[in-house]
Nucleic acid binder design. Structure first.
Length: 96
DNA sequence: GACTTGACTTGAT
DNA sequence: AATCAAGCCAAGT
């Protein structure tokens, strides 16, 4: 599934459920997040491009970290809100 | 090996 | 519209 996350192109985002499904696990959105949370700080994986159905990262306390990465998303072309929200509907990844 | 918890999601109240 | 509850399945303890 990390492969799927790594496959998310710039300027695009995918929901946990979506990544889970594409990864081959239609009912494991939480495990996806679980893995993402285990990712190191200097990871190449664009885990910040993975958001929940609302279009933001429910990083549970790590929100500040998420925001930092989210801000990076803006540099990639993703309009991230000051709260870390983004336009999931408009930038949802189709699956390359 | 069982119990608890969890970066989720959808539906109901 | 916001909050509560149930469902799923795997990893952590």
């Amino acid at each position: 599934m990390l492969s799927v996350v790594a496959r998310i192109p710039e300027g695009r985002v995918a929901s946990y459920a979506q990544v889970a499904v594409m990864a081959g696990y239609p009912k494991r959105p939480r495990q996806v997040g679980m893995v993402l949370k285990g990712l190191p700080e200097g990871t190449d994986l664009p885990w910040q491009r993975v958001v929940n159905s609302r279009g933001y990262i429910p990083s549970r306390g790590r929100w500040w970290g998420a925001l930092e990465q989210a801000a990076r998303l803006r540099e990639e072309g993703v309009p991230v809100d000051a709260e870390g929200n983004l336009d999931l509907e408009g930038f949802r990844w189709d699956g390359a």
